[in-house]
Computed example of a mutant assay.
Amino acid sequence: MAIFGLSTSNPAFTNHFWDRPSRKMGRMSIRGILIKSLFCLALTSITAGYTWKLFFEGANIKWYTNGGIIVSLICSVLISFKPQWAKWLVIIYALSKGFLLGGISAYVHKSFPGFPFQAVGMTLITFFVMLLLYSARIIKVTKQFKSVVISAAVTIFTIYIITWILRFFDIEVSFIRGTSWFAIGFNVIAAIVASLSLLLDFDYIERYRGRAPKEREWIATWGLLVTLIWLYVEILRLMRKLATRF
């Protein structure tokens, strides 16, 4: 079962992209995806560091963070409909996400020093733990498993988009963004779903490596970026909420 034609929690990994023929030589490889992912994460770190610097210099970074959200959303939509543009759009996506992450991280670091760095560490640990669980087949990625994770991910993203839009009208959704037990519980569930989404990504990459065209590595890279950035943000938010409440 799939939602909106998705077979994983990331729109990057749909049959829409992989079933299209290509005349170019080469096939998707783990090495290619790894190199591109590290490159894009480096770009994200650069713009994140720049936004971080502006924040602590006293600059207003609201437009940087909101701009990062808007540009990354536009890139995601364009990649969905124009996968042949992925090489450049994924780079723009990575840069724009850096502005968003830099703003969020700097804001949290100001009140809770060191939290962003701890969140990065926890994200990396979670990534390797999920990779180990997948490699050892401790958690099997079945069709039912995919259906549950996809449904949860789509619901969470929809809620976040709605709350983000409402903020432009000065409407704050406290039961999501606050520090109540409900808000913390929602954050915990979102972090768990983000972690499980990595398993779906690993599964799809494994099934299509050596089969999908080489240029589709950019699509796979985009998918991993979506999940890793989402996981980092959820961990950072959860840490902030718990520290504020307790």
Rank of each mutant, 00 (worst) to 15 (best):
S45H: 07
I192N: 04
V226Y: 08
Q84V: 15
I70Q: 02
G68I: 07
V129C: 06
F157W: 11
F145W: 07
F169M: 13
T51G: 01
R209V: 01
T221L: 02
L199C: 04
I150R: 05
K143M: 06
S9L: 12
L41I: 05
L124Q: 00
R177P: 01
V129R: 02
R237D: 10
V108W: 07
M122N: 04
A153H: 11
I171T: 08
S111E: 15
L236G: 00
R20G: 01
M1K: 10
N10Y: 06
I161W: 00
L228T: 09
I235C: 06
F128R: 00
T179N: 13
L196Q: 06
G223V: 02
F117L: 12
T126I: 11
P116V: 03
I92E: 09
V108A: 12
R207Q: 12
I138C: 05
L225R: 06
F175K: 13
F115S: 10
I161S: 01
S9V: 15
F128G: 07
I70M: 02
V108Q: 01
F128L: 10
V148E: 06
I229D: 01
L132N: 11
L43I: 10
V148Q: 07
K36E: 08
V141S: 03
L131Q: 13
A243K: 12
F81C: 00
M239L: 14
L225M: 14
T179F: 08
D170E: 14
W88F: 15
N187V: 09
P116R: 09
L200D: 00
A42P: 01
V77Q: 06
G103T: 10
R211D: 05
L89K: 11
N15Y: 14
I205T: 08
V148Y: 12
A220I: 02
T158E: 00
I162Q: 09
D19S: 15
K214C: 02
L101H: 06
D203Q: 02
F99K: 09
C40W: 06
L73Q: 12
I159N: 00
